[in-house]
């Protein structure tokens, strides 16, 4: 297992355009500092996020994947996030069966005004995954 103190987890955050991506923007506007661990992938609605995308992010070497969107009831497309929730449960089970620790996959609803919440979320997940070390699904040779 990796003992290098400098190791930072590699995280992918899928964000919907209207809420969580906006939350990440607001974090920027409020200068809420956060570890540089995360790369955001924007989709219009969290309902667009296919379990396959998440799975592929792990296969590419992500140590954690965040599925984010609007709060339930706030989805810009009525209820896209409710479908996300259903797909997420399936994804969670599948990844657990593959031996992935639960802290590597998160579902979180963040509104466009919750900049601090976005930053804290990144901080928390980064800290937790740092404890866990690199993901078991990481391809060989990737840190």
């Amino acid at each position: 297992m990796m003992t290098d103190k400098e190791w930072t987890p590699k995280i992918v955050a899928f964000c919907c355009n209207w809420c969580s991506y906006g939350g990440a923007d607001t974090a920027g506007m409020g200068r809420f500092q956060q570890p540089a661990s995360t790369r955001v992938i924007r989709v219009m609605c969290s309902g667009r996020i296919d379990p396959l995308h998440v799975f592929n992010a792990f296969l590419e070497g992500a140590d954690a994947v965040l599925v984010t969107g609007c709060h339930i009831g706030d989805c810009h497309y009525v209820n896209g996030n409710e479908k996300t929730e259903v797909r997420y449960q399936f994804l969670e089970e599948m990844l657990q069966q593959l031996g992935l620790e639960p802290d590597r996959l998160h579902l979180n609803w963040i509104s466009a005004s919750e900049g601090e919440r976005f930053a804290n979320f990144i901080k928390d997940v980064t800290a937790k995954v740092k404890e866990l070390g690199p993901s078991p699904l990481k391809p060989a040779g990737v840190k």
Binding site: V12, R39, H53, A57, L59, E60, A62, K143
Partner: peptide, 12 residues
């Protein structure tokens, strides 16, 4: 979307 994920992996 897959291309973005792949490009993500290339930087690790």
């Amino acid at each position: 979307i897959m291309a973005v994920i792949k490009a993500y992996g290339e930087g690790l």
